[in-house]
């Protein structure tokens, strides 16, 4: 990638625990327009996966963009992706750049 291109990473989180175990802040019409990971709880699926990091911005969940979604809408989308029995994982497209 070029030096000025923002980099994004696709992280597949297997549903290895009963909770996803992340806390997010942000969403449309707030200071943080895309959801940012603020906590990763030990023992949750995200922690077990080991690839999500505090501070990363979530761009997409299972290929669905979070751009323009308000906080509660983004949180609901992530919660439903984790709860859904369609897949035994959740795909996150994340970036380290804010």
């Amino acid at each position: 990638p070029g030096l000025l291109e923002p980099t994004s990473t696709l992280v597949r989180v297997p549903k290895s625990a009963s909770t996803l175990g992340i806390a997010i802040e942000g969403g449309a019409n707030t200071r943080q327009p895309l959801p940012r990971i603020v906590t990763i709880q030990r023992g949750g699926s995200a922690h077990n996966c080991g690839q999500l990091k505090v501070g990363q911005i979530i761009l997409e969940v299972n290929g669905v963009s979070l751009r323009g979604r308000e906080h509660r809408d983004a949180a609901r989308l992530i919660a439903e992706a984790f709860k859904s029995k369609e897949r035994d994982y959740v795909d996150f497209l994340v970036t380290d750049f804010n």
């Binding site: 802040e25 906080h71 992530i78």
Partner: peptide
């Protein structure tokens, strides 16, 4: 007159 210069902070949700 007060003017909002920045967007409000977000709530935090545990998932």
């Amino acid at each position: 007159r007060e003017k909002r210069l920045t967007l409000p902070p977000s709530e935090i949700t545990l998932l």
